[in-house]
Design a protein around this nucleic acid. Structure first.
Length: 423
RNA sequence: GGAGAGGUGGCAGAGUGGUCGAAUGCGCGCGCUUGGAAAGCGCGUAUACCGCAAGGUAUCGGGGGUUCGAAUCCCCCCCUCUCCGCCA
C-alpha cells in the first residue's frame, strides 16, 4: 500500500507510476473517495466530541434529576446521529482502503521503461553455454528413466497433476540441493527459519495475496488456512504489527518450504516435467532493512542468489524487469534465469524484489528511528533458489553419453556421489 | 475433542457502567543531589488518524450488540494457561 499522504500531496507521482507499470487505474476516483472519507471523519469526530463533553457533565448530575433526564433526551438524538455517521464512515473507509490497495507501488527510477517482457533489460549474463552444457543434453522429461525418479503418474493418482513423487536419486538430489542452498545462504549471513506452511487470512492479506488472488492458493476446510505459495508469506508476516529494534537491521533470513500453487490456466510446454508444479520446494531469502540501505541490500541479495548458480556451474542471466513487467507491489525486480540446455530456453529460478515500504505499510512492520519515532522498514525477498527448475537445468546440462548426470563438485558432498543415475 | 481460568500500556498489575488513555510498582529518559555512585526527590515515558493550526478522535485480544454513556454488561470469534481425552 502507498502512503495516503503521497496521493494527496503528489498525485502526479502516483499517476506517473501507474503509467510506467502500464496499468489502468482511475486515480481521480481514488482521490474523490479519500476526500469523501476525510470529510465524513471530521463530521463524525465533531459529533463524538459533543458526546464526550456531555458524558462529563452527566457524570456530575444526580441520576434522577430533571437536568439529567433532559440531557438524556438531548443526547439520544446525538447518539442516533453518531450511529448513522459511523455507519457511513465505515463504509467510506472500506471503499477508500480498497481503492488505496488498488494503487501499485512506485517503480524505482532505475527501472527501465517498457510494457512487455521483451523489453526487460539483460542486466548480465554468466557462464559459457557451449562449455557448460553437455553435448548430450536433452529436455529432462525426455531422459530415459525420468519417470522412475520423478513419478508424475503416481503423483497424479495419489493427488493430482503437478504433484510428483521424487524417488531414489530423485528424492536425494532434491534434498542435496536444499541443504546446499541453506548452508550457502546461512554462510552468507541469513538465519535459517522453518516456518508454518499454512497461514491465516490476515497473513495472506498482509502480503497482498488476499483479496483477489485466492484462486492461486489452496485453502483448507474447515479452518480456512491457506497453503503458502512461497515462504515469503509466513516469513514476511513474522514481524507483522511489530516494531523491530533498529540496531537489529538488516534482519536477514532464509527458509526452505514446500510451495503450493494452483496455477490455474497454465498449459503447454510451460508445465511439462519439472517446469511448473503445484507443489515444489524452494529456499527463500528475505530481508528487513533500513530504508537508506534498501538498494545496497537489494544488490547483495541478488549476488547471494547468483552465487548459488555459479557454484553449481549453471549458465544464467539476470534480467532487470521493465516497468510493465514489474509486479504490482515491487519497486524494482531482477529475475535470475538459468539456461536449460535440453529445452534450449531460459527458466526463471529466482525473482529478487525490492518492495521498499509497500509491504511494510500493509503489514505494519516498523523500526524505531533515531528520533524515537517508528518508521516503516523496507522489505526485500528473492529465491535462493527454486528447486525444480534448477534441477531441470542440472539434469539437462550435465547429462552424459551413458545417461547419467554429473553432479557439480560443490553439490557432490551433499549428494554423496558424483553421478545421478536413472537406471 | 471435553471442562475450567484468563487476555489491560515495555513488563508486572489495579480497575465491574460516567470525571478512565486508564491507579500503583518496576523498567527507561532527563534533571536535582554527590568527589563519584547508590539511595532519595522532581519531571517525563504508547500508537494511529484527521486538521494550516488551535485542537479533535480512536485504541484495554478481534468483531458485533445493549446504553445518553462500555476496559467494565451481552453475543460470536481468536489466542494463552490448567485438567481430562486422543496422538507422532
Amino acid at each position: 500500500m502507498l502512503d495516503p499522504k503521497l496521493l494527496r500531496e503528489s498525485p502526479g507521482t502516483v499517476r506517473a507510476a501507474i503509467a510506467k507499470k502500464h496499468l489502468q487505474v482511475d486515480l481521480d476516483a481514488v482521490i474523490a473517495l479519500d476526500n469523501a472519507w476525510r470529510a465524513l471523519l471530521q463530521e463524525t469526530e465533531t459529533l463524538r466530541s459533543r458526546q464526550k463533553a456531555a458524558n462529563g457533565e452527566m457524570a456530575k448530575l444526580p441520576k434522577g434529576s430533571p437536568e439529567f433526564i433532559a440531557k438524556v433526551a438531548e443526547m439520544k438524538a446525538v447518539s442516533a446521529q453518531v450511529k448513522e455517521k459511523e455507519a457511513a464512515l465505515k463504509d467510506a473507509e472500506e471503499k477508500c482502503r480498497a481503492a488505496m490497495l488498488s494503487l501499485p507501488n512506485i517503480p524505482h527510477e532505475s527501472v527501465p521503461e517498457g510494457a512487455t517482457p521483451e523489453q526487460n533489460v539483460v542486466f548480465s549474463t554468466h557462464g559459457d553455454i557451449a562449455a557448460l552444457v553437455s553435448p548430450h543434453a536433452k529436455p529432462h522429461y525426455e531422459i530415459d528413466g525420468f519417470n522412475k525418479l520423478f513419478d508424475f503418474d503416481r503423483g497424479a493418482k495419489v493427488t493430482g497433476a503437478g504433484f510428483p513423487f521424487y524417488v531414489g536419486d530423485g528424492a536425494k538430489i532434491v534434498r542435496a540441493l536444499l541443504q546446499f542452498f541453506l548452508d550457502e545462504d546461512t554462510k552468507a549471513g541469513y538465519t535459517e527459519v522453518n516456518p508454518p506452511i499454512f497461514v491465516n487470512e490476515a497473513s495472506a492479506t498482509a502480503v497482498g495475496q488476499l483479496p483477489d488472488k485466492e484462486g492461486m492458493m489452496y485453502e483448507t476446510i474447515p479452518d480456512r488456512f491457506y497453503a503458502i505459495p512461497t515462504a515469503e508469506t509466513p516469513l514476511t508476516n513474522f514481524f507483522r504489527d511489530e516494531i523491530i529494534d533498529e540496531a537489529a537491521l538488516p534482519v536477514c533470513r532464509c527458509a526452505y518450504t514446500p510451495c503450493f500453487r494452483r496455477e490455474a490456466g497454465s498449459y503447454g510446454k510451460d508445465v511439462r516435467g519439472l517446469n511448473r508444479l503445484h507443489q515444489f520446494d524452494k529456499v527463500e531469502l528475505l530481508k528487513w532493512v533500513h530504508p537508506s540501505k534498501s538498494y545496497e541490500e537489494h544488490d547483495k541479495l541478488r549476488d547471494d542468489a547468483e552465487r548459488l548458480l555459479q557454484k553449481l556451474g549453471l549458465p544464467y542471466r539476470v534480467l532487470l524487469m521493465c516497468g510493465g513487467d514489474l509486479g504490482f507491489s515491487q519497486a524494482k525486480k531482477y529475475d535470475l534465469e538459468v539456461w536449460s540446455g535440453g529445452q534450449k530456453r531460459w527458466l526463471e529460478v529466482s525473482s529478487c524484489s525490492n518492495f521498499e515500504s509497500f509491504q511494510a505499510r500493509r503489514a505494519q512492520i516498523r523500526f524505531r528511528g533515531k528520533d524515537g519515532k517508528p518508521e516503516l522498514v523496507h522489505t526485500l525477498n528473492g529465491s535462493g533458489l527454486a528447486i525444480p527448475r534448477v534441477l531441470s537445468a542440472l539434469l539437462e546440462n550435465n547429462l552424459q553419453a551413458d545417461g547419467r548426470v554429473k553432479i557439480p563438485a560443490a553439490l557432490a558432498p551433499y549428494f554423496g556421489k558424483e553421478y545421478l543415475s536413472f537406471a
